[in-house]
Amino acid sequence: MNVFKDAGHLFRLAAVFVAGLLIFLVIRGFLVPKSFGQLGHYRANAVAEIAARPIKFAGHESCEGCHADVLDKKKNGKHAGVNCEACHGPQAQHADDPTAVKPDKLDTAVLCARCHEANAAKPRNFPQVDTAEHSRGLPCDTCHHPHSPVIVAGGAK
């Protein structure tokens, strides 16, 4: 007895399924990004794309290449560990083209208070003042030198 007798309709059904699977694989081959799955269940090229985003803060090493004089002033002072851009802001454009892009002038009355305004939550040993009472709105660099903040006789300016 032939087991395949009258089984033609099953083969036709199987052929429809196989055709569907092939179409699925073809479409999938075009839609799934090329690098997907190379490093894990994600698009491997995304890693390089994220790494290629532009930089805004140049980093203190690139400042120190030109501004060695400021580094000398800072290195024995209390602000030795404070990097340039912590106060001067993002300067990657200035580092790329120092003549065309110049950093803004800073207002020490605002800038210094960001760190040194008294607050009960700050560490006890951190130098802090009540600026309203301490300087009454005067810029801090009237008396203190910002790169090495000691009181300068006759004023810093």
């Binding site: 930089i55 980093g59 203190h60 602000h79 990097n83 851009e85 912590a86």
Partner: peptide, 11 residues
């Protein structure tokens, strides 16, 4: 380079 937050942390 280090991160922007680490670069700019003054303490």
């Amino acid at each position: 380079l280090t991160t922007a937050c680490c670069e700019n942390c003054p303490t």
